[in-house]
Design a protein around this nucleic acid. Structure first.
Lengths: 131, 131
DNA sequence: ATGGGGTTTCCAGTTGCTGGAAGGTCAAGG
DNA sequence: CCTTGACCTTCCAGCAACTGGAAACCCCAT
């Protein structure tokens, strides 16, 4: 299977697939002409990676998850640990963003948004701590 | 005022302040010895930048907000537009993360997390679209 | 043989810093 | 006067996870 076909099946851009090979996540064979030749198993790995990435796992997490996936003697606790840590990070990120959103939306609502210069957004940024 | 003092007042690391000079956000004077000499106004700009950054504005947004801040004839509408667009992006990011969180937390809760290999997290990543 | 699509490699750029090396400066202490 | 330590300077590299683009090769059909 050529990279283009794999790209279609996995939804990952060819560039990304090459990158994943670069960093050792997949190791496709090569045809005589130098083209990458993906086996089914490689393609499934790539799909796995794509899904893990859409769940926000870092590449390093993905590498570890992939190893666990391949390891038929894994302990599900190891998987869960990775997922839990990631979940905690996501939650932290969400609350950080929610704080931003709350502050920002207040500011936006208090701003006239007309052609006059008076603006609470700039006023806040210019003076107090916009926590 | 030296960079260290400015760093203390603004909470920004010296490295960051130098970086902001590099990209043209501030333009401190220089003492005879080559040290940066910040005036009050530069320091206020840096505080402004720090607060804008904690609200998640990009550097380019910050650049524009700073210009508006300095422009006494600005229209608050311009400020508000920037803030609104940023707010929309934050909201998009939040909902993306919430989706991740929901999926992930379901998976984590369904995973035994013991020493057996059976794991719904890996199962999901390995098969269906984990949307 | 020519054209259009694939594919290859490599290099650079993205965002917003951060770390580190090599060196100049300054004020205090011996 | 010399040293020590805390500043400060510049420059270069690296982080994450790709993405864009150039130059060149390959394959198939006309």
């Amino acid at each position: 299977m050529n990279i283009g076909e794999v790209s279609q099946h996995t939804g990952l851009p060819p560039k990304t697939i090459r990158y994943y090979e670069d960093i050792g996540l997949v190791k496709p064979l090569r045809d005589a002409n130098g083209y990458r030749a993906f086996r089914e198993s490689e393609m499934h790995k790539l799909s796995f990676l794509g899904r893990a990435r859409t769940l926000g796992f870092s590449i390093e997490d993905c590498r570890n998850l992939l190893a666990l996936w391949e390891d038929k003697n894994r302990a599900s606790a190891d998987v869960r640990t990775i997922a839990e840590e990631h979940l905690a990070q996501i939650e932290a990120k969400i609350s950080g963003l929610q704080e931003m959103r709350d502050t920002l939306s207040t500011l936006v609502h208090n701003c006239a948004g007309d052609d006059r210069p008076d603006c609470p957004i700039l006023k806040t940024l210019g003076t107090a701590t916009a926590s």
